[in-house]
């Protein structure tokens, strides 16, 4: 273990949390990320039992998750493996692929609703220009959020994740917090 103390993307010792109404916003500090790109001639690997998903999709297995980021490119997620050399672990499973460590490139935020999908849909309408009907569970895409480029993942009907540049974590949190605090109980 290195004898340096890490800090979170928001600059704290522990993950930041916000609870408002039916929505909970949480900084996900334990998420490992690695980008995966096929080299020429390589066959698409199967990672820990999941077939790498197609455009717009996110797939989950017991150990890892992955989402499509571009032609022949994916992002692999490893929950609770942020301290590991995740890229090397993924590279070992994917011969003939280019793998790059991305854990610290991103700040990840999980948003969960305790009242079904309605608050999630209301929030998405304020954040991103994505048609929620065409973004069911198992969807992932990159888009713009308040002038920042972010990945949006629909992990479940009531649960989305936002991944954005680590350096802009404060701006992303501010945008998410602002809109979550404004969600009232109104018919969408």
């Amino acid at each position: 273990m290195p004898d340096l103390k890490p800090i979170t993307a928001l600059g704290g010792d522990t993950a930041r949390r916000l609870h408002h109404g039916a929505l909970e916003l949480e900084e996900n500090t334990e998420l490992a990320l690695a980008s995966l790109a096929l080299r020429r001639g390589a066959t698409q690997p199967t990672l820990c039992g999941i077939d790498l998903p197609g455009p717009g999709a996110w797939a989950l297995s017991d150990e890892i998750a992955a989402f499509w980021t571009g032609p022949d490119q994916w992002m692999v997620e490893g929950q609770n493996r942020a301290d590991s050399d995740f890229a090397s672990e993924v590279a070992a499973l994917c011969p003939g692929c280019s793998v790059t460590q991305q854990t610290d490139g991103f700040a990840a935020f999980e948003i969960r609703s305790s009242a079904g999908e309605t608050p999630i849909l209301q929030l998405m309408a304020k954040l991103v220009n994505i048609d929620p009907i065409r973004f069911p569970s198992g969807s992932a895409t990159r888009t713009g959020l308040e002038h920042m480029s972010v990945f949006v993942i629909r992990r479940a009907a009531h649960h989305i994740a936002i991944l954005g540049m680590r350096s802009a974590a404060g701006s992303i949190w501010h945008a998410l917090e602002k809109h979550i605090l404004r969600i009232e109980d109104r018919k969408p």
């Binding site: 096929l38 080299r39 020429r40 490119q73 610290d104 490139g105």
Partner: peptide, 13 residues
């Protein structure tokens, strides 16, 4: 050409 690119500006201090 067989080339893959990814930005790592934020990932490395």
């Amino acid at each position: 050409l067989d080339v893959q690119l990814i930005s790592t500006t934020d990932a490395w201090a």
